[in-house]
Amino acid sequence: MDPFLVLLHSVSSSLSSSELTELKFLCLGRVGKRKLERVQSGLDLFSMLLEQNDLEPGHTELLRELLASLRRHDLLRRVDDFEAGA
């Protein structure tokens, strides 16, 4: 399986429902409101961002910004580990 997708799945499974709600709010300018209403998990949101090329294995800035906004430094370390091994 693609290591970047494994990372996104790992991050998604670590998010609380309130954190997902916050991420959806933060992505309002990037993803349409109707699409965001269908998001049920972090993976749903990340999939939309992947489709729009806002997220890519070599383009993790948005993911970092979102996780920093949540103050999830543990998840930021996972992104660091991914990039160190990528």
Results as ranks from 00 to 15, higher is better:
M1D: 04
M1H: 04
M1L: 08
M1K: 12
M1I: 10
D2P: 04
D2C: 04
D2S: 07
D2L: 04
P3W: 04
P3V: 05
P3S: 14
P3N: 13
F4L: 05
F4D: 00
F4Y: 09
F4M: 03
F4A: 02
F4I: 03
L5G: 09
L5T: 14
L5Y: 15
L5D: 14
L5E: 15
L7G: 02
L7E: 03
L7H: 00
L7T: 03
L8W: 00
L8G: 00
H9W: 07
H9D: 13
H9Y: 08
H9V: 06
S10V: 08
S10Q: 12
S10H: 10
S10Y: 11
S10E: 15
S10I: 10
S10N: 13
V11H: 00
V11R: 01
V11W: 01
V11P: 00
V11K: 01
V11M: 07
S12F: 11
S12H: 04
S13E: 12
S14P: 03
S14R: 08
S14E: 14
L15R: 01
L15V: 04
L15H: 00
L15P: 01
L15C: 03
S16P: 03
S16A: 05
S16W: 01
S16Y: 03
S17F: 10
S17A: 15
S17M: 10
S17D: 12
S17G: 08
S18E: 14
S18C: 08
S18W: 09
S18L: 08
E19T: 01
E19N: 04
E19G: 02
L20K: 01
L20Y: 03
T21V: 10
T21S: 14
T21P: 03
T21F: 08
T21G: 12
E22Y: 11
E22S: 10
E22W: 06
E22N: 08
L23W: 00
L23G: 00
L23R: 01
L23C: 05
K24P: 00
K24I: 04
L26I: 09
L26E: 06
L26H: 08
L26D: 04
L26W: 06
L26K: 13
C27N: 05
C27A: 08
C27F: 04
C27H: 01
G29D: 15
G29E: 13
R30C: 07
R30Q: 06
R30K: 15
V31A: 06
V31N: 03
V31W: 04
V31Y: 07
V31G: 03
V31S: 04
G32I: 05
G32W: 04
G32A: 12
G32C: 10
G32M: 07
K33Q: 13
K33H: 13
K33R: 12
K33A: 12
R34T: 12
R34N: 13
R34L: 13
R34W: 09
R34S: 13
R34Q: 13
K35T: 06
L36S: 04
L36I: 11
E37N: 10
E37A: 13
E37F: 07
E37I: 07
R38N: 09
R38T: 14
V39T: 04
V39R: 01
V39E: 01
V39S: 04
V39A: 12
V39M: 07
Q40S: 15
Q40G: 11
S41D: 09
S41G: 05
S41W: 03
G42N: 04
G42W: 02
G42Q: 03
G42C: 08
L43I: 13
L43E: 10
L43N: 09
D44L: 03
D44Q: 10
D44R: 04
D44S: 05
D44Y: 02
L45R: 00
L45G: 01
F46K: 03
F46P: 03
F46S: 02
F46A: 02
F46Q: 02
S47N: 15
S47E: 13
S47D: 14
S47V: 15
M48Y: 10
M48I: 15
M48K: 05
M48L: 14
L49Q: 03
L49P: 01
L49Y: 01
L49I: 04
L49G: 02
L50G: 11
L50Q: 10
E51F: 07
E51G: 08
E51L: 08
E51H: 08
E51Y: 07
Q52M: 11
Q52C: 09
Q52Y: 06
Q52L: 10
Q52D: 07
N53W: 05
N53Y: 10
N53M: 06
N53T: 09
N53L: 06
N53Q: 12
N53K: 14
N53V: 05
D54L: 14
D54G: 07
D54A: 13
D54I: 13
D54Y: 11
L55A: 06
L55H: 06
E56Q: 13
E56T: 15
E56S: 15
E56C: 12
E56K: 13
P57Q: 10
P57M: 08
P57T: 10
P57L: 09
G58R: 08
G58N: 15
G58P: 08
G58E: 11
H59Y: 07
H59N: 15
H59R: 15
H59P: 07
T60A: 05
T60F: 11
E61W: 11
E61V: 11
E61H: 10
L62R: 05
L62K: 05
L62T: 08
L62Y: 11
L62Q: 05
L62V: 12
L62I: 11
L62N: 05
L63G: 02
R64W: 04
R64Y: 06
R64K: 14
R64Q: 06
R64G: 04
E65D: 13
E65H: 12
E65Q: 11
L66R: 01
L66F: 08
L66G: 04
L66Y: 07
L66E: 01
L67W: 02
L67N: 01
L67A: 02
L67V: 05
L67F: 06
A68T: 14
A68D: 08
A68W: 15
A68N: 14
A68F: 11
S69D: 12
S69C: 11
S69G: 14
L70V: 13
L70W: 00
L70S: 03
R71T: 07
R71M: 10
R71D: 13
R71C: 12
R72S: 02
R72T: 00
R72Q: 01
R72D: 00
R72W: 00
R72H: 00
H73G: 11
H73R: 09
H73W: 10
D74Q: 01
D74F: 00
D74N: 03
D74T: 01
L75N: 00
L75R: 00
L76N: 05
L76Y: 04
L76W: 03
L76D: 02
L76R: 04
L76M: 11
L76S: 05
R77G: 08
R77V: 07
R77C: 08
R77H: 08
R78W: 07
R78Y: 08
R78N: 07
R78M: 12
R78C: 08
R78K: 09
R78A: 12
V79C: 06
V79I: 09
V79L: 10
V79Q: 00
V79R: 00
D80Q: 09
D80K: 08
D80T: 07
D80A: 09
D81P: 00
D81Y: 06
D81V: 08
F82C: 03
E83W: 04
E83L: 07
E83V: 10
A84P: 05
A84R: 14
A84N: 13
G85D: 14
G85Y: 08
A86Y: 11
A86S: 12
A86W: 14
